[in-house]
Amino acid sequence: MSGELGIATASHVRQILIDAVRTCRQVIVDCARLDFCDCAGLNAPIAAQNAAHAHSTTLLLRRTPRQLAACCTAFPTTCV
């Protein structure tokens, strides 16, 4: 992922992630180039994690920026 993950992009990213976890056994998302994430953006990986759990898929967010990493403490199985 790169750029901004906010209200303008969250629904699109959420759908991409959910589609990925429905078709793959493991999904790894590199967040190193993510510049911004707001509450709406945070909902995208949360919804994807819920879908991953329902489909027995592993979803991992790698190299998360500090602002996102702080939020990931609530969802430790999603962020690495």
Rank of each mutant, 00 (worst) to 15 (best):
G6L: 00
H53D: 14
A32V: 01
S56Q: 13
H12P: 00
C37K: 05
T73L: 10
A51H: 05
V29Y: 04
T9L: 02
A10T: 01
H55Y: 08
H53R: 15
R66S: 10
G41A: 10
P76A: 13
I46Y: 12
C79A: 06
L34I: 13
C72P: 03
R33P: 00
A44K: 09
A20F: 02
L68S: 04
R62K: 04
H55C: 14
A70C: 06
C37Q: 10
H12Y: 00
P76W: 05
E4W: 08
R14P: 01
C37Y: 03
A40Y: 10
D35L: 09
S56F: 07
D19I: 01
R33G: 00
P65A: 14
I18P: 00
H53Y: 11
L34Q: 04
Q26K: 13
C31T: 03
T64A: 15
C39Q: 06
C72H: 04
D19E: 14
T77G: 09
G3F: 05
D35V: 07
T77D: 15
T73I: 14
C72T: 14
A52C: 11
A20T: 10
L61S: 03
N43F: 03
I18K: 04
S11E: 15
A10Q: 00
A69Q: 03
L17M: 11
L60I: 13
R25D: 15
I28L: 13
A69S: 09
C72Y: 03
C72Q: 10
D19P: 06
T73F: 08
V13Y: 11
L17P: 10
D30P: 15
S2G: 14
D19V: 02
R22H: 07
T64G: 02
A47H: 12
V29R: 02
D35A: 13
I7G: 04
D19R: 10
A40F: 12
R66E: 10
C37H: 01
G3L: 04
L61F: 13
G41Q: 07
T64F: 05
L34G: 02
R62E: 12
T23A: 13
A52E: 11
A44D: 02
H12E: 12
T78K: 01
L60V: 13
R33M: 08
D35C: 08
A51C: 10
A48R: 04
P65Q: 09
T78P: 03
A51P: 03
T64E: 02
R33L: 09
I7R: 09
L59H: 07
G3S: 11
A69G: 01
R22T: 12
D38H: 05
T73W: 00
H12G: 01
L68T: 03
I46D: 09
A51F: 01
A54N: 13
Q67S: 09
R25L: 07
G41E: 09
R63S: 09
C39D: 07
P65V: 07
L59I: 03
L34H: 12
L42Y: 09
T77N: 13
Q67D: 06
